[in-house]
């Protein structure tokens, strides 16, 4: 028996929100349909009316809603970000997830009663950084970078007096989040400014007969033999040549699945488990959320983590436990 960990689930659309709520999410998180959030993809996210409806649906079923406003406002153009915070407060979201210090300052001053969480995009990886955000902006929870191992998380939790949330499933950043300019170097668009990484608008697949090449901007990110599935060219999951050898130098095209480590994560003092994937469809969200609901309930009851059967939805990708495994570094 351990503390019950909260399950924080992605919603890129109202349909996914319903799927997450119906399948056991304690919280859904989402963003507005603009550059104020870090999943600013075509066809995704919520307008104000959809958020209002989503809040009613979730709250009626005992589920909370967090709003991610986790890009860095553009100099000279803070309007959309301030409005996102103002609307979040007016509509009654349960927390906002923020990364930018100026925006945290604005939210703290203008809406002191609006609960604030620190986004993973703030890359707060040590006690002094985390305590700064707690002292300065009274953040109630910190989403930890995906670079920390479980012993590091446990040690960190002993030095901070704030809830922590960790990623347990989905996409995996191998660079410190919020501190990576690889995407804008190749495409002009970045997670911090535009809310996108390796944007689809800059992706091309070129059939060269014996191989299929995936490109981001002008750069070849990967090449696939005939019949091999051509993956999406996320820059840091590409194949490159160093020292005369081609390899997935930064990271294989894997995604994170830390289900088997939930007991250790609970023992490390983590408050909430986050599932990445606001870009995923409702069926996928339903399956992942219900699987992690079963896993979290089992851990809470002191039982072993059950078989989750998520292999079928890995999109041809291998799974890794990421930094939670020591061998990752």
């Amino acid at each position: 028996m351990s503390e019950k960990m909260e399950l924080v689930c992605p919603a890129g659309t109202p349909a996914s929100l319903h799927a997450a709520v119906d399948n056991g999410a304690d919280v859904v998180y989402l963003g507005f349909r603009d550059e104020t959030n870090a999943r600013n993809f075509p066809g995704l996210n919520f307008n104000r009316k959809e958020l209002e409806d989503g809040l009613i649906y979730a709250h009626d079923r005992g589920c909370q809603v967090y709003l991610a406003v986790n890009t860095f406002p553009e100099a000279g153009n803070f309007g959309p970000w301030h409005k996102a915070i103002d609307d979040a407060a007016a509509l009654g979201v349960d927390s906002v997830i923020l990364a930018d210090i100026g925006l945290l300052d604005y939210a703290t001053t203008k809406h002191p009663n609006l609960r604030r969480h620190l986004s993973v995009q703030a890359s707060a990886s040590n006690p002094d950084s985390i305590n700064f955000y707690v002292d300065a902006f009274d953040v109630k929870r910190v989403v930890l970078p995906r670079v920390l191992s479980i012993p590091e998380i446990a040690a960190l939790n002993k030095e901070i007096a704030v809830e922590t949330e960790v990623f347990v499933f989905g996409g995996l950043c191998v660079m410190a989040e919020g501190r990576c300019q690889l995407s804008s170097y190749a495409t002009g668009e970045s997670p911090n400014i535009n809310g996108v990484c390796s944007p689809a608008s800059h992706v091309r697949y070129e059939d060269e007969g014996d191989r299929m090449v995936s490109k981001l901007g002008e750069f070849t990110i990967n090449a696939f033999a005939e019949g091999e599935a051509a993956g999406y060219p996320t820059l840091c999951k590409g194949r490159f040549v160093t020292g005369g050898k081609a390899s997935y130098l930064f990271e294989e095209p894997t995604s994170l699945n830390a289900a088997s480590m939930l007991p250790q994560i609970a023992a490390a003092g983590v408050t909430a488990l986050k599932i990445e994937g606001r870009q995923r469809g409702r069926a996928n969200v339903a399956q992942v959320v219900s699987a992690f609901r079963r896993a979290a309930d089992a851990v809470h009851a002191g039982e072993a983590v059950p078989e989750l059967g998520l292999e079928a939805i890995t999109e041809g990708q291998a799974k890794t436990a990421g930094a939670y495994e020591k061998s990752w570094r």
Binding site: F72, D100, G178
Partner: peptide
């Protein structure tokens, strides 16, 4: 990350 006048 100092991207805007608020943070500055």
């Amino acid at each position: 990350n100092v991207y805007n006048e608020g943070t500055l």
